[in-house]
Each structure stands twice: as C-alpha cells, then as structure tokens.
Design a protein around this nucleic acid. Structure first.
Lengths: 204, 204
DNA sequence: GTCTATATAGTGATAGAC
DNA sequence: GTCTATCACTATATAGAC
C-alpha cells in the first residue's frame, strides 16, 4: 500500500478547496493543476472538461454522505421508532461528519452552499436528480413522527432545516468556534443545538 | 421627472442579475455592460474596478433592507412588547419584501447567499462590519422575549434563522411556488411558516 | 460622459512528442 | 500517463479622440 495520492485524486482535492474558496466560475484549471502540482493537460486527460471535474468533485463526497444518512435513518426507524430527534440526527450528523472531517471537508460544505446559489447551470439538477430520493425518505420518516402535519408545511420546514444546516455547517453565521474548543466538539454542539431547534419547529 | 435609468443605474441592475445567476467571479464586465446596453469602458469610469462594482451592488439594497428591519423592530418593541413573533417578523419580512420586489429582488437574495459562500474575499467582512449592529439589535430584542435563553444558544438559533431565511427566500429548497399562486402570496406564506417554525425553536 | 482601440494577461482545450 | 507548445478566446483595465 502507499500513502501517495494519484494525480487524479490530487486534482480532485485541489479543485474542491479552490471551488469552495472562489466558486466554480472564478477557479481556473491552471489554479487547480498548480495547487495539485500536476500538469495543466492532466485535467483534460483525466476528466475531459472542467464541467466534468465539477461534477466529480460533488459526486465523490455526496455519495458517501447520502449513504451515511440513509443508513442512520434506517437504524433510527428500527431502534427508536417514532422519535423525531433520531430522524433529525440522521439528517444532520452525516453533514457534520463531512464538515468536520479531514481532507477539506469544511471546504466541501461551502461547495454545497455554492451549488445551491449557482442556480443556473446543471449542477442543481444533477444534485436533485441524484439525491432527491434521500430527501423524500426523510420527508416520509418525519411525517410519520408528526402525524398532524400538512404536507406543504412539512416541505417548508424541511427547507428551513436544510438552510439552517447548510449555513451553520459552513460557519456562515455569528457563531465562531471558541479558541479552547476543538473542531469536532464544536460541530457536535452545532448538531445538538440544531436538532433541538428543528424538533421544536417541526412539532409546533 | 424621467422614467429613464442612468448608465450607472443600468450597470448596477445588470450586474445584480448576472452576479446572482453566475457569481461574481464568473460574471465578466463585458456581460454586464452588454446587458445594460452601455459601453465596456463605462463601468471603469463609474466604478473604478470590478471589485468596487460588487460592493456597490450590495450596499444599494442592503442599506434599504437594514433600515427596514430596524424600523420594524422599533415598531414591534413599542407596540407589541415581549412578543417574539413580532420581532421575528421584523427580521424576516424585509428580506421577503426585497425578494418579492421588482427589479431583480429575487436575484439579489441569491447574491446575498453567494456572498456568504464566498468566504475569502473582503465581502463577508464588509457585510459584517456594515450590518453587524442590526444583528446585535435583534439578538438583544429576542433575548428580552426569551429570558431563560443562554447567550450561546441564542446565537446558534440566530444562525439557524438566518440560514433558513436565506435558503427559503432564494427558492433553494423543495418548495416551489405553485402555478396558481402569485409571487407575493408565496413569499408571504414562506414568512408566516418561518416565523412559526423559528418561534417554536427559540422557545424550546 | 461616452466612445473606439488596444495593452497585457489569463482562459479552456488540444496536438503531438516522449 | 505526463509533458511542452500553442490555438482561439476572453478577461480587466486604460489611453485618448470626440
């Protein structure tokens, strides 16, 4: 085994960091290949085009996070049926794990935030087509926990949860990690607070 | 009086729409001046640089929205003291009014969302320096309504509110405006739902 | 205040040697 | 699989005529 990263992996990692900092449009392939310390032609060899590279950057992490969410959701339904907080934890904690992880996880959360803001190109469609079933699973699970909730109200509140989660995980807001607290503890605190806040909101 | 827009105003309007659609980095001054139907050199004459144009696009609307928020907050505190929902309405509804307004208001909300995602350049600092006092006013007002709330918890929840608001106003989520409902009604519904959701969260 | 023309640099992508 | 060299374009910014 080897601790080396392949050219392809180095390109993906560098692209992820730069996309998060500057956006897709503002990030040039030359910046990416320079940071990855590979030749400019390598990105076209491995990915074909810049747009394809953007999609690969997403797929790599989102697939993992979606699987993580669905497996936690199944556990929650099996072991703690009818408990809203467990469902919300299955939604929130994989995002937290991603954001707190090494290898630019925090950067990736900002990439997601950007993806939503870039509403015109095919990226949003790509995300909703590929991961829409995850959202629908959670909608069903939450509806089972809050029986009287109207469908439209459920969807509004899911949107609020998604927004609050994205915002908090990306460190957009007022809250900054205090000096004495490590990253993982800080993220865990965020998850606890959000689950409590959202649970009250869904039940109101 | 005239219904004409000046060159400067046309540049600002076109820039706002394009920034919202594509981001700052990906939007060229040529796109801006082409849409505004002005010469490419005009933007440098009126704004000096692209970065300055970006700042002006923000300032123009954020100043109005912040004033609107503070005036509604003062009214709420005077007329409906201690009522959390009135405070939240003062925070949420000016954003809604902006998003529902003509002249690319919906686009502008996405510009704000982008500003938060672009964490590296000076834009975030510019926003927090210029509008931080508004956030602090609302923090104080909400704290007065929910006396037992710890300061840290209050800030977490303010972040959740901000995230949910941004996300919902920008139409990022699952909820789409139904065909029979006009834009303004849809936005008003969003505000009502969010105020209810957040009020329950703050009180939990 | 608006225009044309242009300086200077960076862009994505590709061809072809190794 | 990686390299150099280069193509055709576009970018921001500015100089100077009107």
């Amino acid at each position: 085994m080897s601790t080396q990263f392949s050219t392809k992996e180095r390109i993906l990692g560098a692209a992820e960091e730069l996309f998060a900092q500057q956006g897709f449009g503002a990030t040039s392939l030359r910046q990416v290949t320079s940071r990855a310390d590979v030749n400019i032609a390598a990105v076209n060899y491995h990915f074909g085009s810049k747009e394809n590279l953007v999609n690969e950057v997403f797929r790599r992490r989102m697939d993992d996070m979606s699987d993580h969410r669905l497996s936690m959701l199944n556990d929650a339904r099996a072991q703690r049926p009818g408990e809203l907080e467990a469902i919300l934890a299955a939604f929130v904690e994989p995002a937290l794990a991603l954001a707190a992880g090494r290898n630019g996880g925090g950067a990736f959360i900002r990439v997601i935030a950007r993806a939503y803001a870039e509403q015109n190109d095919g990226l949003r469609g790509f995300l909703s087509e590929r991961y829409g079933h995850v959202q629908r699973e959670f909608a069903r699970a939450i509806a089972d926990c809050v029986p009287g909730l109207a469908k439209e109200q459920l969807y509004w509140r899911l949107d609020f949860l998604g927004g609050a989660l994205t915002y908090a995980m990306a460190d957009f807001g007022l809250i900054r990690r205090p000096p004495g607290v490590d990253e993982q503890t800080h993220r865990r605190r965020a998850a606890e607070e959000l689950i409590r806040f959202a649970a009250a909101g869904f039940r109101s």
